[in-house]
Simulated scan of single mutants.
Amino acid sequence: MPSVSAVPPSPPSSRDLVVAALRTAGCVFAEDEAELILTTARTPAEAAEMVERRAAGLPLEHVVGWAEFRGLRIAVAPGVFVPRRRTEFLVEQALERAARTGVVVDLCCGSGAVGAALAAALGPVELHAADIDPTAVRCARGNIAAVGGQAHQGDLFEALPPTLRGRVGILAANVPYVPSDEIGLLPQEARDHEPLVALDGGTDGLDVLRRVAAEAPRWLAPGGSVLMETSRRQAPTAVAALERHGLETRLGVSQELYAHVVTGVRP
């Protein structure tokens, strides 16, 4: 009988190699991340560099340069807070209040994802985004330029044009709300590669939220709403902070996204 030669195993594909490298680095969703890197990279060398940066611990969004948010591709520069999927619930809550909104403000805007998503859903609006971090402001400016949005740098309301006082229909503020002594419990990606100012909310996590609650009534139009993301544990205190300044409140909860959004409406 003729001898049968063993068929040599096929060499691993580039995808297999990327998956293996990411899995070795501890990436739980190595297959999905490999697909994203390989479809984003323009050359094999760029893909290899992306894998190396991801294996070193950089957030995937910083590696590929963008994050998906409500179906939009939002550019995310290194050092900028990465928009979370749970924050899509903040946008949904805002849209429920936005039937006649002409002016939208994205405060503590980071990449500008919330403002971009609101403008995409609402159509033509006057959109302003603001952040204290100049890197975030540059990133947001690029993300909201297509919808005619303006980005401003400064500390909360100090960054906004005074002409917006009393005119804002939707004030979405994705404020930092992690208590200071819990920052060390965050995933390493956040601790090492996102700005502390976008994470640290002070002793109980609500320092910035209280500042926004105190100033918001002066900027909202009659019937306008301020919306802020918080945690389940902090929600009752956050609601009380809004009520203290004469706002009518509601608490929205998404069990699916584990998201809590407090809304205050100017009567």
Rank of each mutant, 00 (worst) to 15 (best):
Ala136Val: 01
Gly149Ser: 12
Gly148Arg: 03
Ala146Trp: 14
Gly148Glu: 09
Val137Asp: 13
Val105Phe: 00
Ile144Gln: 14
Thr135Met: 12
Asp155Asn: 13
Asp155His: 15
Val175Ile: 14
Ala119Met: 10
Gly102Val: 08
Cys108Met: 08
Cys109Thr: 14
Ala120His: 15
Leu171Ser: 01
Leu160Thr: 00
Val114Tyr: 14
Leu164Lys: 06
Gly148His: 06
Arg141Trp: 05
Leu118Gly: 10
Gln150Thr: 14
His128Glu: 01
Phe157Ile: 02
Ser180Val: 04
His128Asp: 03
Glu158Leu: 08
Arg165Met: 02
Asn174Gly: 14
Arg165His: 00
Gly166Lys: 01
Val137Ser: 15
Ala119Glu: 04
Pro162Val: 15
Leu122Gly: 11
Val103Leu: 03
Ala145Arg: 15
Gly149Tyr: 04
Ala121Val: 07
Val104Leu: 02
Gln150Asp: 11
Pro179Gln: 07
Asp181Leu: 11
Ile183Gln: 07
Leu164Ala: 00
Ala151Gln: 00
His152Phe: 15
Val103Arg: 01
Asp131Met: 09
Gly166Pro: 15
Ala172Trp: 02
Leu164Gln: 02
Gly166Ser: 06
Ala121Met: 08
Phe157His: 09
Ile144Asp: 13
Ala146Gln: 11
Tyr177Ile: 03
Ile144Asn: 13
Arg165Ile: 08
Ala146Pro: 04
Pro176Trp: 07
Gly142Pro: 13
Gly112Ile: 03
Pro176Asp: 04
Gln153Lys: 00
Leu171Val: 10
Arg138Val: 00
Glu182Pro: 00
Ile183Cys: 10
Ile132Glu: 14
Ile170Leu: 11
Val104Phe: 02
Val147Thr: 15
Gly169Gln: 07
Leu107Glu: 15
Pro162Glu: 11
Ser180Thr: 15
Val175Leu: 13
Glu182Leu: 15
Leu127Tyr: 10
Gly166Leu: 13
Leu118Trp: 10
Ala113Asp: 07
Ala173Lys: 11
Ala173Phe: 00
Leu156Cys: 03
Thr135Glu: 14
Gly166Gln: 13
Tyr177Lys: 06
Val178Asp: 07
Gly142Lys: 08
Leu127Ser: 01
Val178Phe: 10
Val105His: 03
Ile144Ser: 04
Ala130Ser: 10
Asp155Arg: 12
Thr163Pro: 00
Ala113Met: 07
Thr163Met: 09
Cys109Tyr: 01
Cys139Glu: 05
Pro134His: 10
Gly123Met: 04
His128Arg: 05
Gly169Ala: 12
Ala140Asp: 03
Ala119Val: 01
Arg138Gly: 14
Pro176His: 07
Ala120Lys: 12
Asp155Phe: 11
Gly102His: 13
Pro162Ile: 02
Thr163His: 07
Ser111Arg: 02
Cys139Phe: 05
Thr135Val: 15
Leu164Trp: 00
Ala120Asn: 07
Pro124Val: 07
His128Asn: 11
Leu164Arg: 09
Asp106Tyr: 02
Val105Asp: 00
Gly148Val: 08
Val105Pro: 01
Gln150Phe: 05
Ala121His: 01
Ala146Glu: 04
Pro176Ala: 05
Cys139Met: 06
Ala116Leu: 15
Gly166Phe: 13
